[in-house]
């Protein structure tokens, strides 16, 4: 299901800035990143690669139905 979990977040916010499609946000209370809009995840892994503590797990499966040109 695209980006799956964020565990061990230190709240640096780099994944929020790195995500091209605004999937991740910081929780105002805890300061930690959370998956806010998973359906928009394009599974590009930028967030994971930018995370200094490697907190992000991503699966290759998309959350919403996938439209392709043929199947």
């Amino acid at each position: 299901m695209s980006i799956t979990s964020i565990r061990g977040c230190i709240g640096c916010g780099d994944c929020v800035r790195a995500c091209p499609t605004d999937v991740i946000r910081l929780d105002a209370k805890t300061g930690k990143a959370f998956i806010a809009y998973v359906e928009d995840c394009q599974i590009c892994h930028l967030c994971r690669m930018y995370c200094p503590v490697d907190a992000i797990i991503i699966s290759p499966e998309k959350m919403i139905p996938v439209v392709v040109s043929w199947r």
Partner: peptide
Amino acid sequence: QDALIKLLTTFETQGE
């Protein structure tokens, strides 16, 4: 090295 610096200089969460 960049990850380590970031990790040791981020003070945004209680747990950290």
